[in-house]
């Protein structure tokens, strides 16, 4: 019994040390974002002192020159727009293909499931072609593209949930004179809400962090946050503004941390539920 006692005394300090180690990388970026750009690379572990501390100037100067604020707003627009469109459209589709049993809906379901397995590299070149030839290569068009790519996982998760819901309530609503659209938005969608939240969280995190798709479709002219970060490091070797770069990283992380701390219960549950994607 003595053994367990020792381990239970040691556990909290070990976990605390580990937790600190986990936070250090993020803290490091945060600290360096207040240092002058000449004192960051090579000496990131030194705390800012009188000589190296520059206050908020990295945030103000570094970010306004790199077009980061526009990128930030663009990322917010694309993420919010895509998530709303994905949640509404895919839940409608999921309900329809689960309730209407035809060869077509069955085939569609398997195609959605299949698309989850295919890595992005398989379709990236030809997708860029179809999207640009349809003039969808702009911040509004890309929302539609995200609907296509998000459809697989979202339809899969939502229709899994629809299957577990008995359809008596829906039928009662239809008999009482609701049209299918009314039935869906007044009866079905409220029931789907827990899964819809999970789907929204998974898609929001994916789209906010996504780099390759916006890079290929929008290019460097209409940067999103990840593209802006990657671009500012590319092709500018030697002349990289490390101060502004640190500020960018901080501003890219902050929304995620705020979002996470405000609804972490849903997020952890959602991410684990999304593990089926594999």
């Amino acid at each position: 019994m003595k053994k367990t006692k020792i381990s239970s005394i040691l556990t909290p300090p070990i976990l605390t040390v580990l937790a600190v180690l986990f936070v250090i990388p993020i803290l490091l970026v945060f600290i360096n974002s207040f240092k002058s750009k000449f004192y960051i690379i090579g000496t990131p572990f030194e705390l800012p002192d009188k000589e190296t501390f520059v206050g908020l100037s990295n945030y103000i100067k570094g970010l306004s020159t790199s077009g980061f604020f526009e990128a930030f707003l663009r990322s917010v627009f694309i993420t919010v727009g895509s998530v709303i469109l994905i949640v509404i459209c895919t839940s409608m589709t999921a309900w329809y293909i689960t309730r209407v049993k035809t060869v077509f809906t069955k085939m569609l379901y398997y195609l959605f499931v299949f698309s989850m397995v295919v890595p992005f590299q398989m379709v990236m070149y030809t997708m860029t072609f179809t999207v640009t030839s349809l003039n969808l290569d702009n911040p509004v068009g890309i929302i539609f593209v995200y609907l296509g790519f998000g459809a697989g996982l979202s339809v899969f998760m939502l229709s899994g949930f629809v299957k577990s819901v008995p359809n008596e309530i829906e039928e009662a609503a239809m008999i009482d004179g609701c049209t299918p659209l009314q039935t869906f938005f007044r009866v079905v969608f409220p029931i789907l809400k827990p899964t819809a939240i999970t789907v929204a969280i998974l898609n929001a995190m994916w789209i906010w962090n996504d780099y390759l798709l916006p890079y290929l479709i929008l290019g460097t002219g209409q940067k999103t946050v990840p593209v802006a970060i990657q671009i500012s490091m590319q092709g500018a070797y030697g002349s990289v503004d490390w101060g502004g770069f640190m500020a960018m990283l901080v501003l890219a992380i902050i929304p995620i941390i705020v979002f996470y701390l405000s609804s972490q219960k849903y997020i952890i549950k959602g991410v684990v539920a999304g593990a089926v994607k594999g």
């Binding site: 409608m92 295919v118 030809t126 997708m127 539609f144 593209v145 790519f149 339809v155 299918p180």
Partner: peptide, 26 residues
């Protein structure tokens, strides 16, 4: 419900075809 196929399935279906299905076959 069957008659409502265009409303319920078309938006997702078209987006899916443009960004995944057609590019995959191509």
């Amino acid at each position: 419900l069957k008659k409502y196929l265009p409303i319920f399935v078309l938006p997702t279906g078209v987006a899916f075809a443009i960004s995944f299905l057609i590019p995959f076959v191509m």
